[in-house]
Design a protein around this nucleic acid. Structure first.
Lengths: 388, 388
DNA sequence: ACACTTTTGTCCAAGACCGACAGAAGTTAC
DNA sequence: GTAACTTCTGTCGGTCTTGGACAAAAGTGT
């Protein structure tokens, strides 16, 4: 209930604002310098911070700067449907290494997590990784944050109830936190992306599926069962297409990476879109990126698909804006890379359908971080635990 | 950011759990009894608490009980479209007086607030009101909570930007807080209603309009501009009827007290519903309550109207459940009094359309407090400020 | 009458915290 | 080059907070 301790506040300040002198810390924290000095001694003792030499004089004695111990390392992992991103950061969350690997999440937790620990082990052997102080990992499905365990994830067969956190903790010997991918991506946007100054915002991921990370009062909101933000199965069309979840007309069935690929196949086969028909002939298969390419090439049918989809996402978001009144919406995920045609359509639907009061000064932007937001967010999540 | 002070925690404990001995408080608060004793002395000094004699022995010395000063009085006010409720409570938020008065909110703030202060003055003159320590008031429209000022309220012409809080503070000489009516009703449900053990829940008010109070981590969530919970204008039908807000197919245009009255008039005039036709003949006008009566009398058309409406509310709530994952939904407001036919339809739509994970153990109930929730919530709101 | 329990107030020591002070290490004015 | 001034850091002593121990008060049960 109580706010962060002095301990935690100093560490997070040093993490987020970089090295600081004792005097600067005194201005930033409303405590006496004496108290701060004592706390810094304790943190040095613990090996969490270190001296970082002297800064330039500002007209008097040169300030002695302290910083997060430069030997600290966090790992941020983001698991997607078809890929894994592993990043290693220093204690200030700067990315030192970033490895992306193609992998099918359906191969199961043993294989995927094995790759993760292998990649981290490789970095360690290269000497880049003195010691890991914590690992955060985001998974593309519902996760019980408290237990660190996936919970009936639709696109991750074999992962249900697998003790991801405990396994990784045992394997790596450091604290581990597991969360939904949209939550860690939202955290990433808050840490280094467009959401740096936001208190209440939404991170909407349009990838293979559609999900949403919710930040309330600067903290990830997970809901009563940890399933908050699962907007992919909100109904947008009464008698729309069947969805994997068993219902009709879900957003995800109408617009998502998977839905877009299906629609592309349909318009390619029917000949409506010559561009996509050629693509299908060449590759034998179509993905959402092919629709993006068709759009860029001026294909009118691709434009229609994207605009229709954007309108549907916009309709759902309009409702959420009225309900939640965020100060920002960030759109991310693979499909978001389609760019401004999609964004314009979403914007138009949201602004048309939400109350003026709620859309006043509501920026609606595409994430600029891409995959980075996930790994940084995951590292940020575990650093919050370590700097506590 | 920091949690509630010891000061506040003791006061709220005494408010919510009634008189307690020092030893009991020691068990409830994780602080030494010494510390608690010192704090209690200070609170006695301030006149906020008082000794309340000795309780029964439990095998040893009889405990000396302290309680909230019995002279403390809070006022809770809830303004509806056509009525005002004023309650006076003691410091433990027990309602001592409750006056309801028919009033048209469109007569403007001077008149309505004048009646409020008049009613409170009358109670004071009767000697029931030693001194007012704070007043909370809920208004049926958007309110800037920070400024205590209504913000472009659709059904309260003349109230826009009227300095409600400052006016009442000047008039009554005590702290005043102003909020949206759904927010204070949600607080009331949390304090004495079904939501007592809920951390994240929704209070959905279906009255003249439709609105929603959101509680996150036990506290009212107001959003970036204070307009969170405005779900009346979420679209449920693409080409539905026109709404006062300028859009088509808003929930409020399809189902609300006002919409139900309109629909009743239509089916009465067309002769579809003989029951309502008779009622119209008798009274010359129809309200939502007439539909409830028709339903109770077994009128099939009224049943259709209620079920259709319930389905639409349920559809919107289904989306919000997926997004927000509450641990409880409370339905309140005048139209909610229609009862189980409406509730059954809402439930069915929500359970059918939301993810199983989110609806697991999700109670969806009608408020049992009625108008009381508003006034108690308003008093609770201001008491949180005073016990701070 | 006696042993035991529960509750309360008091006392004391440990620790948190702040302001003041002084010294260290610069810069600027002359 | 020196004196005066600035900025920064460490230390010291005093005040306030806090919790544990203790003892007294006020009961119950045998």
């Amino acid at each position: 209930m109580s706010g962060p301790s002095t301990h935690a506040r100093l560490l997070r300040l040093l993490r987020d604002r970089g090295p600081q002198s004792r005097a600067e810390l005194g201005d930033l924290v409303e405590l006496s310098r004496t108290r701060i000095g004592a706390e810094l001694d304790r943190l040095t003792e613990l090996g969490l911070i270190e001296e970082a030499g002297l800064a330039e004089s500002r007209g008097g004695r040169r300030p002695a700067v302290v910083r997060i111990n430069s030997g600290l390392r966090f790992a941020g992992v983001n698991v997607g449907a078809t890929s894994v991103d592993v990043a290693v950061t220093d204690g200030e969350l700067h990315v030192l290494e970033h490895i992306a690997e193609e992998i099918d999440v359906r191969e199961g937790p043993d294989h995927v997590l094995g790759r993760v620990t292998y990649l981290i082990g490789k970095l360690r052997d290269q000497g880049h990784l003195p010691q890991l102080h914590g690992l955060g990992i985001g998974l593309p499905g519902p996760v019980s944050f408290r237990d660190g365990v996936p919970y009936a994830p639709p696109i991750m067969p074999g992962w249900d109830q697998f003790p991801v956190r405990d396994n990784l903790t045992r394997e790596l010997g450091c604290p581990v936190l597991v969360d939904n991918d949209v939550n860690v991506m939202a955290l990433g946007e808050q840490h280094v992306g467009v959401a740096r100054t936001s208190e209440d915002f939404l991170f909407v991921k349009i990838g293979t599926g559609v999900g949403c990370g919710i930040v309330v009062n600067g903290e990830v909101y997970r809901g009563a069962n940890g399933s908050a933000g699962d907007i992919g199965h909100i109904q947008v069309e009464e008698d729309g297409p069947a969805c994997g979840c068993g219902n009709l007309g879900c957003l995800e069935a109408l617009f998502s990476g998977a839905a877009l690929a299906r629609a592309a196949l349909a318009v390619a086969s029917s000949g409506e879109s010559p561009f996509l028909a050629v693509r299908l002939q060449e590759r034998g298969i179509l993905a959402a990126t092919d629709v993006a390419d068709a759009l860029a090439a001026g294909d009118p049918v691709a434009g229609r698909l994207v605009r229709e989809g954007g309108r549907r996402v916009g309709l759902v978001l309009a409702g959420l804006v009225s309900f939640f009144n965020p100060d920002l919406i960030v759109i991310g995920g693979g499909v978001a890379r389609i760019g401004h045609v999609l964004l314009a359509e979403i914007r138009s639907a949201v602004y048309r359908r939400s109350l003026p009061l709620a859309t006043n000064n509501l920026p609606l932007v595409v994430s600029e971080l891409g995959e980075t937001s996930g790994v940084i967010g995951a590292a940020r999540m575990i650093s919050d635990l370590v700097y506590r």
